[in-house]
């Protein structure tokens, strides 16, 4: 490795650790959240350094962008943290043994991880790629070799939406607009670009970095930006159409997984002839529904309810 690269990595990782600490322990909660968002951005850079562009894309949109927006929206709705100065000092003292324990744990973990041979499955994935139906190894793992994981993961996301909606109406609400007058204009400019990039990433996922996850994340980022700029979910889209859009991804996944059993009798075994097309369908369905579900997570409640409240 080039010394300059090593220096860059060292600085990057050091800042990440410092920001992570700040993100958890900063005295002011707002500073904590902002540090955490910066931590997310640097993590995205770290993914680039680790040659993981797919993760970098998803992290930049999700880890830094969407999580940050969610955190800020939450923060605006909370009571200020009540914690006297005396209490804080007492807490600091009691932190010492924990710190020692943490350091010991870190060192043990490092010693163990350094000794790991890490054989990995790279070779196996590579040798199975000709039958995978796509050219990108990551997409092949996500949508073919380990597609069952991805199906369950989409179920997790839908569950999160149901869980948040079940808590009652208008939890985070879309009223948490950013006080930036130029935002609407900027969003009008950015939104078509983001949607366009979504489809570009979906299309690219077949052969290079991209695919359903980053595409969905980008779509969600665009939609959330639009919401922040004051856009509202159109009246005719709320209720049943929105619910169907949210459910569509998981349903499409299940239908294809079970449907291909007609050919070979094996769950999720795409017939070789149709594999590229089926994977493309799954990818588009997954990408779009990930985008819609992530936006719904940000909405924090059924939009029908917020609309009823605001108009």
């Amino acid at each position: 490795m080039h010394p300059a690269e090593a220096l860059f990595d060292a600085l990057l990782l050091l800042s990440m650790v410092v920001l992570a600490w700040q993100g958890v322990h900063a005295r002011n909660m707002f500073r904590a959240v902002v540090s955490f968002m910066m931590f997310g951005l640097l993590t995205a850079v770290a993914w680039v350094r680790l040659e993981a562009p797919d993760i970098a894309l998803a992290e930049a949109a999700l880890g830094a962008g969407l999580t940050g927006a969610l955190l800020l929206a939450t923060l605006g709705r909370l009571k200020p943290e009540r914690r006297g100065a005396r209490l804080q000092r007492a807490a600091k003292l009691s932190m010492l043994p924990w710190l020692a324990l943490g350091l010991a744990g870190t060192m043990t973990l490092l010693a163990v991880t350094l000794a790991l041979p890490a054989p990995g499955l790279g070779e196996r994935v590579l040798s199975a790629m000709p039958e995978a139906g796509v050219d990108s190894p990551v997409t092949a793992v996500l949508l073919n070799f380990r597609a069952w994981d991805t199906l369950l993961e989409i179920a997790v996301m839908l569950l999160a939406v149901i869980a948040i909606w079940s808590l009652g109406q208008d939890v985070l609400a879309s009223t948490s607009r950013l006080p930036a007058p130029s935002l609407p204009a900027l969003v009008r400019l950015l939104f078509p670009l983001l949607v366009l990039s979504t489809f570009y990433l979906l299309w690219r996922g077949g052969h290079g970095p991209g695919g359903a996850f980053p595409a969905g994340a980008l779509l969600a980022a665009g939609l959330v930006l639009a919401l922040l700029a004051g856009a509202r979910v159109p009246e005719r889209m709320t209720g049943a159409p929105l619910r169907c859009a949210l459910a569509a991804g998981l349903l499409a996944f299940i239908i294809i997984a079970v449907g291909v059993m007609a050919e070979g009798g094996v769950f999720f075994a795409y017939p070789p002839r149709h594999a590229p097309m089926l994977i493309a369908i799954v990818e588009i369905a997954a990408g779009l529904s990930i985008g819609v579900m992530l936006t719904a997570l940000f909405l924090g409640g059924e939009p029908t309810d917020t609309q009823g409240g605001s108009t």
Partner: peptide
């Protein structure tokens, strides 16, 4: 660390990021 980049952890992390975001939102 292997000779080729192993895509399986990449897929796991992508899944993990989405799961983490979902649980965080809840």
């Amino acid at each position: 660390s292997g000779t080729t980049v192993d895509p399986v952890p990449h897929a796991m992390v992508l899944t993990g990021i989405v799961v983490a975001l979902s649980t965080t939102a809840v």
